[in-house]
Structures are given as C-alpha cells and as structure tokens.
C-alpha cells in the first residue's frame, strides 16, 4: 500500500510534465532494479469509435510490481482504456487512439514497434475464459512456441509446467495435460488463461473483469493468484466489484463517462475520495 501511495499521480498533468515523466522513465530504464518504477505511463489518451469519443484525455501511471484497479459504471471506458495498453483496439474497425502511452518509457505507438512484440510483453486475460479448443498443454505452449521462447521439447515442457504452477493450476491438471482446455471448470479455465498469458513472460498483465463469469470460490482463487503475481508483474485489473478492487489492488482509478475522475491509493479512494462522483459511486448512489 505504501509504495503505491508514493507513486500517486495528481491530475491533470500538463504536457510539459508528461514529457518530463516520459524522459525520466527512459533514464530510469537502465536502473530498473533501483525500486518500484512507473511501468506504463499514459498521457492525454483519447479514444474514438468513429465519431464517438469513448475516452477523454486520460493520463495514468501504472507502477511496477503492484496491482492497479480500474473501476467505474458500465460503459465508462475502463475496458476500452485497458485495451489501449496492448493495442487490442487496433483490431476494431473505426477505432482511433490519440495521445501517448509508454511502456518502460518507450512509445507503444512507435511505428517501428511490432504490435506482436508489445502483446508478448503486455499479456491479457479476458472477461470470459477463452481457452483455445486444444489441449491444456497446447494452450500454454502456444505463446512460447510462436515467440520461439523454447528450444526443444524439454524446455517447452518446463515453461508449461512453471506457468501452470504460477497460475496455481498445475496440481489440478498435471494428469490430464493432453485433455481439452475447454473441459475444465470456469475458474480453472480462467487460471489456464492466466497461465497462458504468463507463459510468454510478459511484464504487464491486463485483466478485463477476470472474475465476472466465476463463482465466489473460483473468484477467491483468482484473487489469491493476482496477489501472488504482483510480486513479479505490473497488473491492471478492470472490475465491477468494488470489494474486489479494495481486496486486490494498491492503486485504484475511477472512470466516469470516459474520463478519469480520480486516481489514488486504493485505501484513500475507498476511505476518503476527493471527487464527488467517486464518493457517490463507492457508496452505491449510482452505477
């Protein structure tokens, strides 16, 4: 909690400071071990679907090795913004993103950057568990295989096992790695998807309402997993459950009607929100 509050960003950020942050991030890149850094920084991001503006002027810093929660009522743009970070919005016709998003100080919209590389570094877990209709093993092995992360089968086996272990699934599925991934229960499928995301050794993991299709027990397991994963990854989670945001995150951003209404340490947002809209939302007056 403590380090998250240190990294709190106050809004709005002027273009000058954003440039300064970006350049300082680049400087910091060399000394990443020095302490918790800003992993992802967004400055003045606007997203348009055709003529409709879905995101207005959002600037956010995502710290390394912690969990950031995006909360807000339906249609507020939190998922849209999340999908900007690994450029999943590129796949949607008529979607336009402006502004600057940096990963380790490098612009993700840089034309020289291959979006495939970006997505290998920024993994994603979706709302509905979506394992490939293949075996459990193949589900996890697919990413490392296409990125050429493993030389030979033993190395691949190792990646699959360690990814499944990190996702807390290995013990449950070790006897049926060749069984279909779609044959697992909903919670197991979602952890399989997390294992699949981890397998390509990303630096950031985006989670788009990962528990909304799960029962409370499976949800608890996934939350536990998120808590363990934050030791190694920067995690951004979009959630509709404020309890979940309070449980798993160190930093919380509240979105409302396409704008970032408030961002701060989770504790502060939930106990002492500065914005009226945040207060109304977390006290259940709307949303």
């Amino acid at each position: 909690m403590n380090d998250a509050s240190k990294l709190q960003v106050t809004l709005p950020i002027t273009p000058d400071t954003s440039a300064a942050v970006a350049s300082s991030a680049m400087v910091r890149e060399g000394e990443a071990a020095a302490g918790p850094d800003i992993k992802v920084a967004a400055r003045n991001v606007d997203v348009f679907y055709g003529d409709k503006q879905a995101i207005k002027d959002v600037s956010v810093d995502i710290p390394e090795r912690s969990v950031t929660a995006f909360i807000g009522p339906s249609g507020c743009g939190k998922s849209t913004f999340l999908r900007c970070i690994n450029r999943m919005n590129d796949t949607i016709d008529g979607c336009r993103v402006t502004g600057e998003i940096t990963l380790d100080g490098l612009d993700i919209h840089d034309p020289s950057l291959d979006v495939v590389e970006l997505r290998a570094r920024v993994g994603m877990v979706f709302q509905k568990p979506n394992p490939f209709p293949k075996s459990i093993y193949e589900n996890v092995a697919y990413g490392p295989r296409i990125h050429g992360l493993a030389r030979g089968r033993p190395e691949l086996d190792e990646i699959v096992e360690s990814s499944l272990r990190k996702a807390g699934l290995f013990e449950e599925v070790k006897d049926r790695l060749d069984g279909p991934g779609t044959g697992l229960s909903g919670g197991q499928q979602q952890r399989l998807c997390i294992a699949r995301a981890i397998a390509v050794s990303p630096e950031v993991i985006l989670m788009d309402e990962p528990c909304s299709a799960l029962d409370p027990i499976a949800t608890a397991k996934v939350e536990e997993l998120i808590d363990e994963l934050k030791a190694n990854y920067a995690i951004i989670i979009v959630t509709h459950s404020m309890q979940q945001a309070a449980r798993v995150s160190q930093q919380t951003a509240f979105f409302h009607l396409g704008v970032l209404a408030e961002i701060g340490s989770t504790q502060e947002i939930f106990t002492n929100p500065k914005d009226k809209r945040t207060q109304d939302y977390i006290t259940g007056r709307f949303g």
Binding site: N86, M88, T91, V116, E117, L118, R119, A120, G123, M124, V125, F126, K128, N130, P131, F132, P133, Y142, G143, I146, H147, C193, R196, A197, A199, V200
Partner: peptide, 22 residues
C-alpha cells in the same frame, strides 16, 4: 467466436497466425 481471436492476439500471435492456427 471472437474470443478465440482475442485470445490468440492477446498472447502476441500475428493476425495471420491467429487466422491459420485458430
């Protein structure tokens, strides 16, 4: 289902890999 495409793109498959593998 589009979720299959998203899953493949999400782990960093290219458009063509997504189409031909999944």
């Amino acid at each position: 289902p589009p979720s299959i495409r998203e899953a493949a793109l999400g782990v960093g498959a290219s458009k063509m890999q997504t189409v031909f593998h999944h």
